Measured scan of single mutants.
Amino acid sequence: ENVVSAPMPGKVLRVLVRVGDRVRVGQGLLVLEAMKMENEIPSPRDGVVKRILVKEGEIVDTGQPLIELG
């Protein structure tokens, strides 16, 4: 699984990683606000951040690609 998608609609509050960062399974990639709750979106696997597909403040839909892992 190379693309991390939004599990719910919401607003991207914070991106916690940068392109080139090594991440571990379960590590927070970004914080999504949904229904006034902050939800940290975890990495599904170990890898390297290849691309960040959203910006802070952006509104996303369920299933929208957020981050690509390499």
Rank of each mutant, 00 (worst) to 15 (best):
residue 38 E to P: 09
residue 70 G to L: 05
residue 8 M to W: 15
residue 34 A to L: 06
residue 50 K to I: 13
residue 54 V to L: 10
residue 66 L to E: 01
residue 33 E to T: 10
residue 6 A to Y: 14
residue 48 V to R: 02
residue 44 P to Y: 15
residue 39 N to R: 06
residue 21 D to A: 04
residue 53 L to Q: 11
residue 53 L to K: 05
residue 19 V to P: 04
residue 59 I to Y: 06
residue 35 M to S: 14
residue 49 V to K: 00
residue 52 I to R: 03
residue 34 A to V: 12
residue 15 V to Q: 09
residue 26 G to I: 07
residue 55 K to H: 05
residue 14 R to I: 14
residue 39 N to P: 10
residue 52 I to V: 12
residue 27 Q to F: 05
residue 21 D to I: 01
residue 15 V to D: 08
residue 61 D to L: 13
residue 6 A to C: 00
residue 56 E to K: 02
residue 63 G to L: 12
residue 38 E to S: 13
residue 69 L to A: 15
residue 17 V to C: 01
residue 46 D to S: 04
residue 35 M to E: 05
residue 12 V to F: 05
residue 29 L to G: 04
residue 66 L to K: 00
residue 16 L to E: 15
residue 31 V to C: 01
residue 66 L to Q: 03
residue 44 P to A: 12
residue 54 V to K: 04
residue 8 M to C: 01
residue 1 E to N: 00
residue 27 Q to G: 07
residue 19 V to A: 13
residue 24 R to F: 05
residue 65 P to K: 01
residue 54 V to G: 06
residue 53 L to Y: 09
residue 55 K to A: 08
residue 21 D to Y: 00
residue 54 V to H: 07
residue 58 E to V: 05
residue 27 Q to C: 01
residue 42 P to E: 07
residue 59 I to C: 01
residue 45 R to D: 15
residue 62 T to Y: 08
residue 56 E to A: 04
residue 18 R to A: 13
residue 15 V to P: 03
residue 10 G to I: 12
residue 50 K to Q: 10
residue 13 L to T: 13
residue 45 R to N: 15
residue 70 G to I: 06
residue 28 G to S: 11
residue 49 V to S: 06
residue 2 N to K: 03
residue 19 V to T: 04
residue 1 E to A: 00
residue 51 R to D: 14
residue 9 P to T: 08
residue 56 E to F: 03
residue 5 S to T: 11
residue 68 E to W: 01
residue 11 K to P: 11
residue 28 G to R: 04
residue 65 P to F: 09
residue 67 I to Y: 10
residue 39 N to H: 03
residue 63 G to N: 10
residue 70 G to K: 07
residue 28 G to H: 10
residue 61 D to M: 08
residue 42 P to Y: 13
residue 39 N to F: 14
residue 33 E to R: 12
residue 10 G to W: 08
residue 43 S to Q: 04
residue 40 E to W: 04
residue 47 G to P: 00
residue 8 M to K: 11
residue 26 G to T: 09
residue 18 R to P: 08
residue 15 V to L: 13
residue 2 N to R: 00
residue 30 L to F: 02
residue 62 T to E: 07
residue 70 G to C: 01
residue 32 L to K: 09
